[in-house]
Design a protein around this nucleic acid. Structure first.
Lengths: 223, 223
DNA sequence: GTCATATTGTGAAAGTCTTCACAAGCCCGG
DNA sequence: CCGGGCTTGTGAAGACTTTCACAATATGAC
């Protein structure tokens, strides 16, 4: 009989995953790694959901966007699903990251263990302060931000982390975009303009605190 | 003539604002402060929208949840709207914040200027490492995490920032909740369980990078 | 005073995301 | 081999968010 379809080269179908779906997948992966460390062989959507704060249906819907990974009646194979999630999230290959801004936030990121662990390789650190230029952070020497074009040239950098003060952020992004960078993690409290096809992820600590402040007033009705 | 209504004690009507609405309000406030610094007296929803990455209709809907602050044909008065947003977000009064975990992330937060600027007062720092206990961070002396109960007692702390390793986070939160804390900013990559009525805001740096990684694969179809 | 222009505030429509509910499938004991 | 017990994958329903479109209304020129 004819093989109906050898499911294309390597990638699953994938309709369209929203940002929040992707964040949840990332959480699932972490839970799976925990389960694997605990020696669990299989896990159900219900179990996975209870560890995060979501529902079993949500877990199944999220996964079903990318394929059919479970066994009915049984659940999911822990190491196998973890592997699939790594594929889906693009963690199977290393990404090269440049950090612009070697201040406190930059330093915290540099020392953040989850960073390198997941295949994000810090390959360059840039700063505008001349007294920092030349410092060695681990194996990396801090360069002046004027070298940004050289650093990102020829696709040498996949992701740029923007940890500079607000007013300087847009210029950094523009120059990196011109050099071909397609993804940014932005800590500056400004809203960056980028051409379509370029992704920006904002982490705004002030806003996070203000959301809490709003909750404390009790004027919101979240259960 | 009778005053139709002296708009209740102090707070606007407010139906129900979602988390994303509140995050946008926080952004609007920042933009308004920029405009004010530039000497602008009024601003339209269109103008406000163009600085963030949203639409004029969205801006108006967000604001309309809390009242009617603009003038038709003219727009919004910049200082006045900023003031209203500060009220809505709860920034009119200071909040007392305790930081648990005096490592890199804790240190970055401590030095983050937007933190104190917006009325978030760091009143205590706790860590489990005995070599850190007793250190002075500015005017604050680092205490041992065993003192958590004392620190949060009698509503002395409004918000607890959790910057400890994953496995230690839940215990910190449980103890703080028992002490009456109602809001948490969590940097540990775990999903915390709290009773209803308690707010947790998660900042998961690994997940942010993984969202970017996913985008870089180009399997998502965001314009 | 009237007209032209600008911009808000808001129902209604469209779109997106989450939850529900159930058929289909897999495992195991007897 | 059969039946009971679970659990997935998914269409359909429901809930929530965003966008549209327009009446209401403020300003300023003449």
């Amino acid at each position: 009989m004819l093989p109906v379809s050898a499911t294309p080269p390597s990638l699953p179908p994938s309709r369209r995953a929203s940002d929040s779906t992707v964040r949840r997948l990332s959480l699932y992966l972490r839970f799976l790694e925990d389960f694997q460390a605990e020696g669990r062989q299989t896990v159900s959507s219900r179990h996975l959901a209870s560890r995060g704060s979501t529902t079993a249906a949500q877990v199944r819907k999220d996964l079903s966007l990318f394929g059919s990974f479970g066994k009915r009646g049984l659940g999911y194979d822990v190491p196998q699903l973890a592997e699939r999630l790594r594929d889906i999230l693009g963690l199977a290959r290393p990404w090269r990251v440049a950090l612009v801004g070697a201040g406190r936030i930059g330093s915290a990121l540099f020392h953040y263990p989850g960073f390198q662990e997941r295949g994000f390789q810090l390959t360059a650190i840039l700063d505008v302060a001349t007294h920092r230029v030349g410092e060695s952070w681990g194996a990396i020497r801090v360069q002046h931000v004027a070298d940004l074009e050289t650093v990102v040239r020829d696709g040498q950098v996949d992701i740029v982390v923007v940890a500079v003060p607000g007013p300087a952020a847009q210029e950094v992004v523009d120059r990196a975009v011109a050099g071909g960078v397609k993804a940014f993690l932005n800590f500056a409290p400004v809203s960056l303009k980028v051409p379509s096809g370029v992704a920006v992820n904002n982490v705004n600590l002030a806003a996070e605190l203000e959301v809490l402040s709003f909750h404390l007033l009790g004027r919101d009705a979240r259960e």
